[in-house]
Design a binder for these strands. Structure first.
Lengths: 235, 235
DNA sequence: CGCCGTATTGAGCGCTCTCAAGCTAGGTGG
DNA sequence: CCACCTAGCTTGAGAGCGCTCAATACGGCG
């Protein structure tokens, strides 16, 4: 049995898939371009997708790779706001003001689909079910990243690992995966020193919660990790 | 010159005002009830608006008072997720799953307008400009609460005070206001011990940033506060 | 006026940061 | 193919911020 084409594979987990499909099928199929999807482009590692305060033209869906969003504070220090993984939408944060409130940069070779914001709003205006989908997409983003407000570093990191694992595999926590970001990035995002992140990985490994080899993570006990994310590593 | 009616005053700063107005004016004016706004109700101090995992029926707009959202962790400890101030919308977090992901409780006597979720979506489906407004409301919520990820307690609290001040007065930082929540609530929300919050208020006062008397806050230097929220209180 | 919940203040300890030194891995050039 | 080189990761020792526990002060409400 042949596996689905790569393109299809990638799009199955995409938050915009239903709208993108709808647009490409409903409109004059072949002659007109898809009114929602502008094009897909590839970013090199460390290439900027957009910069702080650029005007909102498009939102983007990550197809492969990963992106981090960050600001630079008065000291010139980077402050990471979020990570965006395959299937997720980046750029919605600009809706409030019309300008991106952060810079976005690729963490590795990254594929993104560009969706012009105005075209999207115009297009969904005529389709009630697509409106509801967009509201869902926004509703999802509202709930992200709540776990950062943990008092203890162990809790933050355990919750972070579970979150990334779930997002990389669409809600099913799978055993093995590769972290798209560095220890420095994790620490910056969680408000921890990179050394602390490193030490915790070692302790998590000793405690039999997971196996670590550089960026390769293998979750041994998701249940124990979940426990640690709530109660801390008391042992 | 007569002052505007209290009702009007309260509604001017409401995120849903334009939709609520649109609905009450467009539909058969007097005979039919407003299809978007169900009714306004008053909560006593500590009265629940809804509980964790209740199904999403309505979203609510705060007209007066304040509400906090919280979860109870495995230890039975409260964890505060957010505060909702007059003019703001609560309940959008339930869009993702269809269930409220937290309990919501009034911090004082609180007035809320109930907007049934399905009616709202049905109503805006026919009005392009209202769709855009809802997208903006959701876009606004996406950006809230980013400042919590500060490494130092001073920064977190300074940013928190500025945020509350701005939200209580619609973007213009005004000098004097009253905190709707306790020291315990602030600490819980920011991931700090209530004693630390108290000590910081004292230090902020000594440093001439603000005046504190219990829940009454008077900002002396918003600029310095802004500085502290980024750089810390080095003096 | 007295009570109770909330806020303040103090002392000591522990977690996490900082600074600094090895270590590992992947990439480059000879 | 191997030695080097660099960036990122790991590990260690000491210092400081913020937590915990505890006592006191305040303030609103009956």
């Amino acid at each position: 049995m042949p596996t689905p084409s790569p393109k299809h594979d990638i799009c199955q987990q995409c938050w915009m898939e239903c709208i993108c499909q709808h647009a490409s099928q409903t409109e004059a199929p072949a002659c007109k371009p898809n009114p929602v999807l502008k094009h897909t482009s590839e970013l090199k590692c460390r290439e900027l997708l957009y910069s702080y305060h650029d005007p909102l033209k498009s939102i983007y869906v990550i197809k492969a790779g990963a992106i981090k969003s960050f600001q630079i504070d008065l000291n010139g220090q980077e402050r990471i706001l979020n990570f965006y993984l395959p299937g997720e939408v980046i750029g919605l944060e600009a809706i409030q003001t019309g300008f991106y409130p952060y810079s976005a940069i690729a963490l590795s070779k990254t594929l993104v689909c560009e969706i012009p914001y105005e075209s999207l709003l115009d297009y969904i205006a005529d389709y009630r079910e697509l409106q509801r989908h967009i509201v869902k997409v926004l509703g999802f983003r509202i709930n992200q990243g709540q776990y950062i407000i943990n008092h203890h570093a162990e809790q933050s990191l355990a919750a972070f690992i579970l979150d990334i694992a779930a997002r990389l595999h669409q809600e099913q926590v799978t055993l093995a995966f590769e972290l798209p970001m560095s220890r420095y990035d994790i620490g910056n995002y969680l408000g921890l020193a990179p050394e602390t992140v490193s030490r915790l990985f070692t302790r998590f490994q000793s405690a039999g919660l997971l196996q670590v080899q550089n960026k390769k993570i293998k979750i041994i006990s998701a249940d124990k990790l979940r426990w640690v994310s709530q109660e801390g590593l008391a042992s």
